[in-house]
Simulated scan of single mutants.
Amino acid sequence: MADLIPPALPSVSLLLASVAVLVSLARLTFPAPSGRHRRPVRPDAVRRRPLEVPLDGGAARLVRPYVIAAEQAARRRELLLADFGIDGPGPYVIHGVEVAA
């Protein structure tokens, strides 16, 4: 059986060289977008309306997410214990309504 690799080497190397040239030309012609692969936004394309009334920072109640998560975990634990008839300490409020102990 004849070895087919040596006669195929010149044509394969020519093919790889031509592919490399085409890839480099494509990269020069079409540069990759920067950032998160988005087109840059022109500043005049974004129109923002000025606020008529400035925002009041004191009107909104800011709560850290971990505080809410801890409260939810405590509520779930109390409801789970209530399923088994165990009353937990603290105010007995379910869904914002105070209930009898």
Rank of each mutant, 00 (worst) to 15 (best):
V97D: 11
D44L: 01
R36N: 06
V46Y: 06
P33M: 10
R36V: 03
S34W: 13
V19Q: 14
V67R: 11
A73R: 03
D56A: 15
L62M: 04
T29E: 02
A73E: 03
E98W: 14
E98C: 08
V46I: 14
E78T: 07
R64C: 15
Y92W: 11
R39V: 08
V12C: 05
A2F: 02
I68A: 05
L55A: 12
Y92N: 04
P33K: 14
R64S: 13
G58R: 15
V23N: 02
E71D: 14
D83P: 00
R27E: 06
E52K: 09
R38S: 03
R48D: 00
P91E: 11
P65C: 03
E52R: 12
A100S: 10
V53Y: 15
G96H: 13
R36Q: 14
P43M: 02
P33D: 12
A101H: 08
R48G: 01
R77I: 13
A60F: 13
P40W: 00
D44M: 01
G85S: 04
L51F: 14
R38L: 12
A59L: 08
P6Q: 06
A8Q: 11
D44K: 01
P54T: 07
G58Y: 05
Y66A: 10
L4S: 07
I86M: 07
V93T: 11
P89W: 01
L25P: 00
Y66D: 14
A69W: 12
